[in-house]
């Protein structure tokens, strides 16, 4: 996955969330985005996910300029998988139906094909016993794994994770991070906004530090954590690594 931004801007009211981001990033497999809360990480991810229209500027993915009209965004969203902090499973559907819905509604699978795809993914994540449960009957970790299953069932070009473990306790966190690690090892392209510095450092091969609406620093993950160049990143790492 290769990302290029050119003069990307986004404001909410008078607050500028993305502040003139211009950068050509190298082609990477697993990219982590770190940075302080409110710095623009999530907005950046949501723009890449096609859920947010920038006020101005351009975004290219793998050399392809993203158009921000409704029809293009819909097609774009169909080609990628997004996982949210709050899981956002559909509470009125069972785990299985949550996975079937995008396959049948957005991707034109017929029911038997969709069933086959959904069941094989549930089996892979060892969730087949929970197929007929509603989200409210599952633990947070199980819900997030179903959400990941829903995102990868459609065979996306790449996966976007928006703080996927922030709503989970430590045990469930590792259950979800294990799966993300597995997906990376499979060679899936992914972009991950996270507060887990350790995971970002070990699992990602490239890392962006986003603060104040800009990409303040970027580089191979190991290097970024070992030798932070900017004052902001040094301060940030100093704060989050203290405990």
């Amino acid at each position: 996955m290769q990302l290029s931004f050119k003069n990307l801007m986004k404001s909410y009211g008078s607050r500028r969330v993305l502040n003139d981001i211009t950068i050509d990033l190298p082609d990477t497999r697993a990219m982590a985005v770190i940075g302080p809360s409110g710095g623009g990480k999530t907005t950046l991810l949501r723009t890449i996910a096609g859920l947010e229209r920038p006020d101005c500027g351009q975004l290219s993915i793998d050399g392809e300029l993203l158009q921000f009209d409704d029809a293009s965004l819909l097609l774009h969203r169909r080609s990628i998988g997004t996982v949210f902090q709050a899981f956002n499973l559909f509470p009125h559907l069972t785990a299985l139906e949550n996975i079937l819905l995008p396959l049948e509604q957005a991707h034109g699978y017929r029911h038997p094909e969709a069933m086959e795809a959904a069941e094989s993914i549930l089996k892979r994540f060892q969730l087949e016993g929970h197929a007929d449960k509603k989200p409210a009957q599952l633990s947070g970790g199980q819900q997030q794994r179903i959400a990941i299953a829903r995102a990868i069932a459609i065979k996306p070009r790449f996966l976007l994770f928006d703080e996927p473990t922030s709503a989970l306790d430590p045990e469930m966190t590792s259950e979800v991070l294990d799966i993300i690690g597995e997906l990376r090892d499979e060679g899936r392209d992914l972009l991950l906004v996270t507060h887990h510095m350790g995971f970002a450092r070990t699992a990602a091969d490239y890392c962006l530090f986003v603060a104040d609406g800009r990409i303040v620093e970027n580089g191979p993950a190991e290097q970024l954590f070992a030798e932070p160049k900017s004052k902001e990143l040094r301060q940030f790492l100093g704060r989050v690594m203290r405990y």
């Binding site: 819909l74 969203r77 169909r78 949210f84 956002n88 819905l101 995008p102 957005a106």
Partner: peptide, 20 residues
């Protein structure tokens, strides 16, 4: 987040309204 998730999985506005 429900509308967000429905859009993210590639459903149109009317599909999202109807099914989610």
């Amino acid at each position: 987040g429900q509308m967000e998730a429905a859009k993210a999985i590639g459903m149109s506005y009317s599909q999202a309204m109807r099914r989610v």
